[in-house]
Simulated assay, not measured.
Amino acid sequence: MSKPDPSLYRPCVGTMLINAESRVFVGKRIDTKEGDWWQMPQGGVDEGEDLDEAMLRELHEETGLMPSKVELVARMEEELYYDLPDDLKGKLWKGRYIGQRQRWYCVRLTGTEADIDLEAHKHPEFSDWKWIEAALLPELIIPFKKPIYETVVAAFAEYTRA
């Protein structure tokens, strides 16, 4: 299978945030209209932005965590791609992209749960959050992102074993 054309996919970073018990942070999206979907922090990379810096910025925007409250555990070298469902194509991201290409990171919380503040950014993305076992991630994410989450869970499995 050939690699998709990167220009058709929005550049993005995703973060598997784990705690001392190797459980994974998930947030309930504020803008989800249908379903009870939870996801890990993720977001777009600005043009020219370093991927590591984009990950820390997105993590801060979505969880309130300062970079000093986490440590990098691992990063996936390959990008993961997903296509939007047909009913969303042309609607998200001003119709510029047909999906996302994501670089995933695993970081460990070195601060405390009190450092997590979903309202740290003026436009919160999550209404609630919780720690879960990594194996549950693919069942909690919106279905079209499930293959991405299965890949991320497998890639970072050694860090999420209790």
Rank of each mutant, 00 (worst) to 15 (best):
Ala114Thr: 10
Glu62His: 14
Cys12Ile: 09
Val107Ser: 05
Ala154Asp: 14
Lys146Pro: 04
Leu56Tyr: 04
Gly64Cys: 08
Arg108Ile: 07
Arg101Cys: 04
Leu118Glu: 03
Phe25Gly: 01
Phe144Cys: 02
Arg57Val: 08
Ile116Leu: 06
Ala74Val: 03
Ile132Thr: 05
Ala157Tyr: 00
Pro67Ile: 05
Ser22Asp: 14
Pro124Arg: 10
Glu125Tyr: 11
Pro4Thr: 02
Phe156Tyr: 03
Tyr81Val: 03
Arg103Trp: 08
Pro147Ser: 10
Asp36His: 06
Glu21Thr: 13
Leu140Ser: 09
Val45Ile: 14
Gly90Trp: 07
Glu133Gly: 03
Lys146Cys: 03
Asp36Thr: 11
Pro41Gly: 09
Leu109Tyr: 06
Met40Ile: 15
Asp83Cys: 04
Leu65Pro: 01
Pro41Asn: 09
Trp93Asp: 15
Leu88Asp: 15
Asp115Thr: 07
Arg96Pro: 02
Gln102Ala: 08
Val13Glu: 05
Ile18Thr: 11
Glu47Arg: 14
Gln102Leu: 11
Gln102Pro: 02
Leu72Phe: 12
Trp131Glu: 00
Glu47Lys: 13
Glu49Ser: 06
Val26His: 01
Tyr105Met: 11
Leu140Thr: 11
Leu51Ser: 04
Leu72Asp: 06
Gly14Phe: 00
Ser7His: 03
Gly14Lys: 02
Val152Ile: 08
Glu119Val: 11
Pro41Phe: 10
Leu56Gly: 02
Glu133His: 09
Tyr82Lys: 01
Asp115Ala: 09
Gly90Met: 05
Thr15Ala: 15
His60Lys: 15
Val24Pro: 04
Val24Leu: 08
Asp83Thr: 06
Ile141Val: 14
Ile116Asn: 02
Val26Phe: 03
Phe156Lys: 01
